[in-house]
């Protein structure tokens, strides 16, 4: 994006004094050559300000998060049943995971399917609906609330009641599919259809990424579209050349967070299977399995080891995503 675009945004949003000041900056540009001493002083001031702003987060991070995280990393190399002292076992937990635990392997497989299939569908649905909602503001409040409503119930017991009813034999889904000649019966007890059912549940609750997309769309200056239209750009062109780049920081956020969330899918699997991970382990997603190992079986060392394998796997994915940012994510505030 060029400076002109930014100045539109600025002109729209800034107060008069700010705009005056900005002109001042423009005039000053080139003249300003700060001495190294004053720069060092400024740096120190920045550091103080930075840590000042970060203070609440830092207290929480150091006080509430770091300790437990390190403790769980330690536990990953121990046998720990919550009651007696942890006992160091080296890499045993990791060896067991990959060589002796068929449930773990199954859990990894179904979780990968869930992430790889579910996340793109959910994000596409969220973006599509957000754009539809953004088409006009009048009258979209009702629709917005309707689309968000399924996400309101979160993962309460009633979600399990509803979802199981929807996908049971002769339930609404089965009946509608039968109408089109697809006769597959109930999904709930069908080992092959349980994961698709769980994915559809995640897609149904697409409210969070939808709202974030919507907030991102609201941040795009309308003038860019109008200008593009004047330039003769069609809808696809506008989507490709205005929406996507202007929304890329939000797309990046949703993509990363939805991947992380999908890897950690827990509550919905827990309530749908009533904590069992059934049928035949097909809802025994990674975090549910980890939870059962830790809290039901009291193998907290093993559970911690599982947790850290997940952390490393997702961290690698996140790292790669952050690296790709440069090539496709656009930040209006950092493009110079």
């Amino acid at each position: 994006m060029s400076t002109e675009t930014e100045s539109i945004v600025t002109a729209e949003a800034g107060s008069r004094s700010v705009r005056q000041a900005m002109r001042q900056v423009r005039r000053d540009e080139g003249r300003k050559v700060p001495s190294s001493a004053s720069r060092r002083k400024a740096n120190r001031r920045e550091t103080v300000a930075g840590y000042g702003f970060l203070l609440p987060w830092l207290i929480g991070f150091l006080g509430l998060t770091v300790g437990p995280m390190i403790f769980s990393l330690y536990l990953a190399f121990t046998k720990y049943n919550l009651f007696t002292e942890p006992e160091w076992v080296g890499l045993d937990n990791f060896v067991r995971m990959f060589t002796e635990d068929p449930n773990y392997i199954q859990s990894v497989q179904i979780t990968l399917v869930y992430v790889l299939v579910g996340t793109p569908i959910k994000l596409a649905a969220a973006l599509g609906v957000a754009m539809l909602l953004n088409y006009r503001d009048r009258g979209s409040g009702f629709f917005r609330s309707s689309f968000y409503a399924p996400s309101l119930i979160g993962a309460s017991v009633s979600v399990a009641i509803v979802w199981r009813a929807m996908f049971s034999n002769d339930g609404p889904v089965d009946n509608s599919l039968s109408f089109f000649g697809i006769d597959i019966g109930g999904w709930v007890g069908n080992v092959q259809l349980v994961i698709p059912m769980m994915i559809l549940l995640a897609v149904w609750q697409f409210g969070a990424p939808m709202v974030i997309f919507l907030a991102g769309l609201k941040q795009i200056p309308q003038e860019l579209y109008e200008a593009a239209e004047v330039d003769g750009a069609g809808p696809w062109h506008r989507f490709r050349n205005v929406t996507i780049p202007m929304l890329s920081s939000v797309i990046f956020f949703n993509l990363l967070l939805e991947i992380i969330n999908a890897f950690q899918v827990f509550a919905s699997a827990y309530i749908i299977s009533n904590g069992s991970g059934g049928p035949a382990g097909m809802t025994n997603f990674y975090t549910l399995y980890l939870y059962k190992r830790g809290f039901a079986d009291l193998q907290m060392g093993y559970a911690s080891a599982m947790a850290w394998v997940l952390v490393i796997a997702v961290a690698i994915i996140a790292f790669i995503l952050f690296k790709t940012q440069r090539s496709w994510v656009h930040y209006a505030g950092e493009n110079r």
Binding site: V9, T10, V18, M22, Q24, F61, I212, V250, G333, R336
Partner: peptide, 27 residues
């Protein structure tokens, strides 16, 4: 109150980074 939910910190970071810098620099 201690911002332990990184989700929100990151979300707001993304939105701030999308705001052109000219204004705060001018300020």
């Amino acid at each position: 109150f201690l911002a332990t939910e990184a989700f929100f910190v990151f979300l707001i970071v993304q939105f701030i980074r999308n705001i052109p810098r000219d204004m705060d620099e001018a300020a």
